[in-house]
Write a protein that binds this DNA or RNA. Structure first.
Length: 277
DNA sequence: AACCAGGGGTACC
DNA sequence: GGTACCCATGGT
């Protein structure tokens, strides 16, 4: 079906924004996406603001529309950034125009970001694909595998986790899965908690520190004010903000600004390396 | 082939 | 509350 999206929807930028690990380029110049037990191919139709997706209108309305967060006005959020008062973020937001914060599954997001620690993005993607193929359900009519459910992941052994390249994160994943399967970790009930309570609840899990918890808030629970600080954002804050980011200006959307900063700064670094070679 | 990756736990202070 | 050090493995 054809989808009309006027502004702030750039598939490549979202795919490379570091929030999702199961978007892969397909042979139509678009992306193959696995999420929520479904698979989708989506690409730009060639006309500006028009996209072609291989799903039914029902699937689009019931799932993908919300997944892509099309009900949030990102253009309006970018316009909160003053060119004069915060020129660095202004440039970053212009550069990152088209990024949206996806509505991803909390469980998949939590596990994915536990896996992510001290791994490169290609290595994260590889581990998640292996784990999904090992324990997830095959998606009808495709050769893709859904992300393992709580029940499915709880049946994966330590040895099998190691075989997926999890390294020292194996024990974190194993414990989290066992806790969830035993009913000691109920992510569904975490929706009731406010941001701070949710952050603290997630950090009680072994292997979940402030950064992984913040990513889970932002990308899995759609708490748009969560502000994950990784190595890149740490450099941005030190180098561009004298260590003090003006959170009060962008409340409650600091997480969106964080994504612009992350995407911009990381790409600047990548590009400067290319030139250097 | 070394180097480092969207960090966290632990042991100190 | 802050800091130093270790952690397994894979992509480049």
């Amino acid at each position: 079906m054809k989808i009309r999206i006027e502004d702030d929807f750039d598939l490549q930028k979202i795919a490379e924004s570091g929030q999702c690990f199961r978007w892969n380029p397909n042979d139509k110049g678009g992306y193959s996406i696995v999420a929520g037990g479904r698979a989708l191919n989506i690409s730009n139709s060639g006309t500006e603001g028009e996209f072609e997706a291989d799903c039914s209108e029902k699937d689009y309305d019931e799932y993908w529309k919300h997944y892509f967060d099309l009900e949030t006005d990102y253009k309006g959020l970018r316009e909160k950034v003053s060119k004069e008062e915060d020129s660095f973020l202004y440039v970053a937001a212009e550069y990152g125009k088209g990024i949206r914060i996806l509505n991803q599954d909390p469980w998949e997001t939590l596990i994915s970001f536990i896996i992510s620690q001290r791994k490169s993005i290609p290595a994260i993607k590889s581990s998640i694909e292996r784990l999904s193929a090992l324990a997830g359900s095959r998606i009808d009519g495709t050769d893709k595998y859904a992300f393992p459910t709580v029940d499915q992941l709880s049946k994966v052994s330590v040895q099998e986790l190691n075989d997926c390249g999890m390294g020292y994160r194996t024990e974190y994943l194993y414990q989290t899965a066992q806790n969830a399967a035993a009913g000691a970790l109920r992510l569904e009930e975490f929706n009731k908690l406010d941001d701070q309570q949710l952050l603290e609840a997630l950090m009680e899990l072994k292997g979940v520190g402030i950064k992984v918890a913040s990513c889970t808030l932002l990308f899995g629970f759609h708490r748009l004010n969560a502000f994950p600080i990784d190595v890149w954002i740490d450099r941005v804050l030190k180098n561009e903000y004298n260590g003090h980011f003006p959170f009060e200006k962008y409340d409650p959307y600091n997480g969106v600004m964080q994504q612009y900063l992350f995407f911009y700064y990381r790409n600047m670094e990548k590009n400067s390396k290319k030139v250097g070679k």
